[in-house]
Design a protein around this nucleic acid. Structure first.
Lengths: 136, 136
DNA sequence: CCACCTTCTTGACACATATCAAAGAGGTGG
DNA sequence: CCACCTCTTTGATATGTGTCAAGAAGGTGG
């Protein structure tokens, strides 16, 4: 995640006249939303997600998912971790295997955010649930 | 220019049923959806989009947008191009300046796709409207 | 404790992407 | 035609990302 993003201090519209009042998107909000979208923006992860959504409990273990996308298990594990740390999947051990399960509210939240154009963040506690960036 | 974007002729218009009808998401569909999500999944582009959405006609020119994100114009041009080739913005010359405008249907289409879980592609003509990859 | 299974982490590599400076391309107006 | 403005492309560079092989970590059952 690039750290070079802007502060919206001195915005002086030049050629197109005074632009509407600043319904600008706060940088932190933009980053948080981008993190979640980035988690979704990969063909492999979309395929994994589609498979999970089609399962009875919307869950499966890594060894089932690897063959679905024809990739090595470490690679699949990497993708699952990315989905999990973005709050799109949850992770649970059951004996030897690990079950990943879809969190539909997370996907709905992203969809709603895009649809309504209200791109600001959910409150902080929701944020902690949905987007545990840098944590595990 | 990276060649990794999907060719529209190859997109199979499979419209799977709601959430959980088909266990697998076709690779082409996954790629096409991922391309659009990737276009959104960047803080700079989200801020540009938020600014555009706040404008009267949901449009602005490059020279207005560059100060918004405090980046050089070539960089902003790069981001705008990415949004445009994903069908999220349209581009129009007006004299010396170029106006980029939001295509709300494109964003709604992505949101709906996520929300309903019907992740297969729209039909080809919609695809041609929304995702003019390789065309200008 | 040991063999074995599933999963994750590490290290390495290739490729994609964000960014800027410099130069080019398109358009306006003297 | 030429100076100037806006915008895009090109080239270069740094960072990010997807992938795998190899090995470590966590758990089961003899």
């Amino acid at each position: 995640m690039p750290k070079t993003l802007p502060l919206l201090d001195d915005v002086s519209p030049i050629c197109c006249g005074p632009l509407g009042n600043s319904a600008t998107l706060d940088l932190d909000d933009a980053i948080a939303l981008a993190v979640r979208l980035k988690a979704l923006a990969d063909p492999v992860r979309l395929q994994l997600l589609a498979y999970l959504l089609a399962q009875p409990n919307q869950e499966a273990c890594t060894c089932d998912l690897a063959p679905i996308v024809s990739l090595s298990e470490p690679t699949v594990s990497h993708h699952l971790k990315k989905l999990q740390t973005s709050g799109i999947l949850t992770k649970e051990r059951h004996g030897m295997s690990v079950h990943y399960r879809v969190v539909p509210e997370a996907i709905h939240a992203i969809a709603r955010t895009l649809d309504t154009g209200t791109w600001a963040q959910p409150t902080l506690d929701q944020e902690a649930r949905y987007c545990m960036v840098g944590a595990s």
